[in-house]
Amino acid sequence: MYRLSNSAATTPVAKQSINGESATAPCSGDRSKFYLHPGQLFVASESYAVTTILGSCVSVCLWDPLTEIGGINHFLLPMDVGDDQASLRFGNHAVRELIEEILGLGAEQMRLRAKLFGGACVLEAFRSRENHLGTKNVQIAREVLQAADIPIVGHDVGGDRGRKLIFHTDNGSAWIKQL
């Protein structure tokens, strides 16, 4: 079973593994493929290979190693500031909703592990500034995960380039291609 929430597959070509394994292209095997758009959230109890493209946006990847339930979001802005509080475009909501959806499928919070990707700033002049959008997106993700006591066991954030991310929901494997 999988659930896709909105705010509203091609063959992966990976360049870097973010879990210490070999940096070869990931083999999706029997996994179904899914493309995640900005403002969406995806969780599954079956095995999926989820792809998304990140610039200043951030994706939080979560999975339960025992039940192999996993999920991923893709948010654009750090905090909602108006009435649009339910929108998955905002990190403070998108990360909490991802946790709730994964627990709803039967994962255990104390077993959850997280990986964090994205938050690029392409302009060198602004990259050291703490208030650029990518940095703020990463920060809110870290804050919400810390509040939920979920360890971040891998990440590839910041920098000056977009990323193509492929995440396997069953075992938490993740590959990044710098664009």
Binding site: I53, S56, L133, K164, K177, L179
Partner: peptide, 29 residues
């Protein structure tokens, strides 16, 4: 077209936004 944004980044774009355009997102970016 969003899945082709890999090409967009390789062409040299800085970021992307998906239609329908959200005003808050556009202004923030």
């Amino acid at each position: 077209e969003a899945e082709s944004m890999e090409t967009g980044y390789e062409s040299g774009c800085s970021d992307y936004i998906i239609k329908p355009i959200d005003s808050l997102e556009l202004v923030a970016k």
